[in-house]
């Protein structure tokens, strides 16, 4: 791990939005209804835009001349710092939506805290992103409630998605030294807000949080699930097979 916590932190934020944006963008043309094709493309676009800002900052802080593209396309899976939640596969549309909701519910309070930090570079990116993410959260919240409290089938699918993904949420707010260094007093607040908000929405959706308290972690330190490798192989193919080419 680097001794520059801000660099590590920017990588984490950038990798989260990159990996999630990458997966969400794969729905283009395949969503259940045209309006969802458009909405998911919007979310993916926002996330890729945020990636460019975070990884751009990480590259500057690292000071080795690596661009956002170098970081995105030329690191191996062990170098990625995203949380495990965002690398979970798209699955059915319910899993994609649940993954989005569980992420947005953390992403939003996180960006709110970051928008108030003393580090102007971080605050500026957070400020720009928080409006977009507040829309993502409204949208995913609304869909989780409607589908959870929808038909028997939609309820069942949303519950299955929640059962499968809940164990990846603990890593989001479990702060390590890097989070503490950047977020200072904000760490507890994010955890509290996350737990309150998710339990309230899940309840309104007539869904049940799984009883198990076990939570996976490792992403922040570069220890990923098997899902990340194929995602990166697909994403990085052109940069890897044409080294040094301009696109």
């Amino acid at each position: 791990m680097s001794d520059n916590p801000t660099y590590e932190f920017a990588l984490r934020m950038g990798d989260n939005s990159l990996v999630l944006g990458q997966s969400v963008s794969a729905w283009c043309g395949h969503a259940p209804i045209l309006e969802e094709d458009i909405a998911l493309a919007n979310v993916a676009l926002d996330l890729i835009g945020q990636t460019r800002m975070w990884l751009g900052l990480a590259g500057e802080l690292e000071g080795k001349g690596r661009s956002a593209d170098d970081l995105a396309f030329l690191r191996d899976a062990r170098g990625f710092r995203n949380c495990l939640l965002v690398e979970q596969p798209n699955g059915d549309f319910g899993q994609t939506l649940m993954r989005q909701f569980l992420f947005d519910a953390w992403h939003h309070p996180m960006l709110k805290v970051l928008a108030d930090t003393d580090d102007a570079r971080i605050a500026e990116i957070a400020e720009k992103s928080v409006k977009e993410v507040s829309y993502h959260l409204d949208r995913s919240t609304d869909l989780i409630i409607r589908l959870g409290d929808g038909s028997d089938e939609s309820h069942g699918r949303m519950q299955t998605a929640l059962d499968g993904l809940w164990c990846y949420t603990g890593e989001l707010y479990a702060a390590d030294a890097i989070d503490e260094a950047v977020l200072t007093g904000g760490v507890r607040k994010i955890e509290e807000q996350y737990k309150d908000y998710t339990s309230k929405v899940i309840d309104e959706a007539t869904l049940t949080i799984p009883e198990t308290t076990f939570m996976h972690k490792g992403g922040k330190a570069g220890l990923h699930t098997e899902a990340l490798g194929p995602l990166l192989a697909d994403m990085q193919i052109l940069q890897r097979s044409h080294p040094g080419a301009q696109w």
């Binding site: 209804i33 969802e36 409630i145 589908l147 929808g150 038909s151 089938e153 939609s154 309820h155």
Partner: peptide, 13 residues
């Protein structure tokens, strides 16, 4: 594949 999604939203409405 999206039928359940559309039906779920209708059922909620």
């Amino acid at each position: 594949d999206g039928a359940w999604f559309r039906d779920g939203l209708m059922a909620h409405a």
